[in-house]
């Protein structure tokens, strides 16, 4: 085998081919689907981005947040308040929202990261409820009624379009940012540190890892990504209210998407998002007419089944299969090792 064939071969590895195909398909999809399906697809990508953001904190660093809707909602609110009250350009507003949420996540993270396990998750629930109550009662944000964004001319600069496709491409670009960050985490010191903290914080400390700093980094990255997606969301729907963006179930759904897809994986959140959104949108569309509530019944049932039968997520299941194969190989190797050792001792 000469050098050239090796290079060509390595280009066609599944690890490169599959993501490339996924990216290509995602980019081409709006050529074939329009209208409501494209709207759903946009939401799928949106949730995949949120799930990826959750994954950095929950999947890598092991801090299972149940308040990611707060980051998402705060991003959306800061963005729309700047647009409505100060007539700031939506893109500038987005950057400000991301910075703002970044700062907020540090302020929230410092006390909350003293807690672990269920205490951490429940404290995040409490934060979510507090933020929701504040926004329901706050006049400047329109209270429970919410607020509308001013309608502007269709242009990229205005973040408003007559067509759905540009929205889709924007969120897709945001999602690719999230995917790149996940790739980076998988192959960087910070990513290894996050995983070490998740596995054993005491041992991580002994290896020179500043736990609070690492967790804060995960939280800030995660929060800012959610704020970015939240900014997209409000420009996409042009309307926002507290019940819509700060819903506890939204937080649950974000976590669920990441866990179902596969904790700590790059493409897991996309798989999770496709399944969860098709499930919830699908059951709403097909069963909503028969009787209110049946969609929830199916959705709830599916969540329970997944949690019981596929607790490691889809990617996790694939990895388990690979692990089993590796284990078989290993047993054989160990058998030969043992035989060798006996031989060595015999010689000595």
């Amino acid at each position: 085998m000469d050098k050239k064939t090796i290079q060509v071969k390595s280009l066609f590895r599944p690890a490169i081919i599959v993501p490339a195909a996924v990216v290509l398909v995602l980019c081409l999809l709006p050529q074939f689907i329009k209208g409501y399906p494209l709207h759903t697809l946009t939401l799928i990508i949106l949730y995949a981005a949120l799930g990826s953001a959750w994954n950095w904190l929950g999947g890598f660093a092991g801090q299972a947040s149940l308040a990611h809707a707060v980051f998402f909602g705060l991003g959306a609110y800061i963005n729309s308040m700047l647009q409505v009250h100060f007539e700031v350009n939506p893109w500038v507003a987005m950057l400000v929202a991301m910075a703002g949420v970044g700062i907020i996540s540090i302020l929230v993270g410092l006390p909350v990261f003293r807690l672990s396990g269920p205490y951490f998750s429940i404290a995040t629930i409490a934060i979510g409820e507090v933020v929701k109550i504040i926004f329901i009662n706050w006049k400047a944000t329109g209270g429970a009624v919410g607020m509308y964004l001013p309608i502007r001319e269709s242009s990229l600069l205005n973040f408003q379009f007559n067509d759905k496709a540009p929205y889709y491409y924007i969120i897709l670009a945001f999602y690719f940012v999230a995917v790149s960050i996940t790739y980076w985490l998988k192959n960087s010191r910070s990513g290894y540190y996050f995983r070490a903290i998740k596995e054993d914080p005491q041992a991580a400390k002994a290896l020179g890892i500043n736990i609070v700093q690492s967790k804060l980094l995960a939280m800030v990255l995660s929060g800012m990504m959610c704020a970015m997606v939240g900014s997209f969301y409000v420009n996409f729907t042009l309307y926002i209210d507290p019940d819509n963006v700060f819903r506890f179930m939204t937080s649950v759904q974000i976590a669920l998407i990441a866990v179902l897809g596969g904790v700590g994986s790059v493409w897991g959140p996309l798989i999770g998002s496709v399944i969860i959104l098709l499930l919830s949108e699908g059951s709403r569309a097909y069963l909503g007419g028969i009787g209110a509530g049946l969609d929830f019944v199916i959705y709830g049932l599916m969540i329970m089944l997944i949690a019981i039968f596929q607790p490691n997520g889809i990617i996790g299941a694939v990895e388990n299969y690979r692990k089993k194969k590796r284990l078989k190989k290993r047993q054989m190797q160990e058998a030969t090792d043992a035989a060798k050792e006996v031989g060595d001792h015999g010689a000595a």
């Binding site: 929950g58 299972a64 396990g117 269920p118 998750s121 179930m249 649950v252 976590a255 669920l256 866990v259 904790v263 929830f296 019944v297 959705y299 709830g300 049932l301 599916m302 969540i303 329970m304 089944l305 997944i306 949690a307 019981i308 607790p311």
Partner: peptide, 14 residues
């Protein structure tokens, strides 16, 4: 832990 939490979440929605 996450699987355990999600089972009860699923039950809640159900």
């Amino acid at each position: 832990n996450m699987a355990q939490i999600f089972v009860t979440f699923g039950m809640m929605i159900f």
